[in-house]
């Protein structure tokens, strides 16, 4: 079922669910939830090493090892193109020449909406520099197309603000982005529960990236599993093609042969 494989930057994946590794209670929970989600691509942040504290502290990459998962370094927390580019280059050095990155350049702390002009600028530089760029953007179809034209490996529109859990707020824009695209489209941000994930997949999205919906659930481990199934269910429903909507009822049992 090649329809069920996700291809990003020439590499194929069985899972269409990508997960973040933040907001968990500890690394044991990060590990357990990552495994339960079935995700193969895990996004991580790049930050200063703690100097002079806990020299023996466990490292995230010990529980999410790069030989088992595809690590997707992100530029979370960057508010300028320069900071995002610098972060990607540090990530490439950290991960021994790894080219796949998640670009996000934020514009505003309250909404965490992307700064689109800075995102376009950073994407151009990173693509020229040889990175495979998965880019967080708004749900604007024209901008999504422009990011594809720049050469991004995947375009990742938000469905609602990061960490809001508000669900797919503008399904028509997501649909338009999907229909126009020649690169994978993944919903990044906004999913709150399993039905949101299924809706995004039913729209034809190639995948979903989420973090808070799992990590902030009352039972993160169970939600990781729910999300795994929701993404599979949504994908299968998309491939199956839903029935047309009708205003009035249509009996499922034959009318012929009734004895009453």
């Amino acid at each position: 079922m090649s329809d069920n494989l996700l291809t990003i930057a020439g590499k194929t994946y069985n899972s269409r669910l990508l997960v973040g590794s933040g907001k968990y209670v500890d690394l044991a929970e990060t590990k357990a939830c990552t495994e339960a989600s079935g995700a193969e691509i895990i996004t991580v942040a790049i930050r200063r090493t703690n100097i002079g504290q806990n020299p023996g502290e466990p490292n995230l990459l010990d529980v999410v090892p790069p030989d088992k998962y595809t690590i997707l370094p992100n530029t979370a927390g960057c508010y300028t193109a320069e900071d995002a580019i610098r972060t990607c280059r540090m990530a490439r050095e950290l991960l021994d020449g790894h080219k796949l990155v998640k670009l996000e350049v934020l514009g505003d702390e309250k909404t965490l909406f992307p700064d689109i002009t800075a995102t376009l600028k950073a994407a151009e530089v990173l693509v020229k520099d040889g990175f495979d760029v998965m880019v967080y953007t708004s749900d604007d179809p024209l901008i999504a197309k422009r990011l594809e034209e720049i050469g991004c490996a995947a375009v990742m529109p938000l469905a609602a603000p990061i960490g809001s859990g508000l669900g797919i707020r503008n399904p028509y824009n997501i649909l338009t982005i999907v229909e126009n695209a020649n690169v994978p489209i993944l919903v990044d941000a906004g999913v709150g529960t399993a039905s949101d994930a299924a809706i995004a997949m039913e729209l034809g999205c190639d995948g979903i990236l989420m973090n808070t919906a799992i990590a902030a659930a009352k039972n993160p481990l169970l939600m990781a599993s729910a999300m795994k199934h929701a993404v599979i269910a949504g994908r299968e429903a998309f491939l199956a093609g839903r029935m047309p909507r009708k205003r009035f009822a249509s009996a499922s049992s034959p009318i012929d042969g009734t004895f009453f």
Binding site: G22, T43, V44, T49, L60, N74, E104, L112
Partner: peptide, 14 residues
Amino acid sequence: IVHAIGGGSANNSG
């Protein structure tokens, strides 16, 4: 000196 830590989107920790 930097390393990888847990983070999804816009994680401001660290």
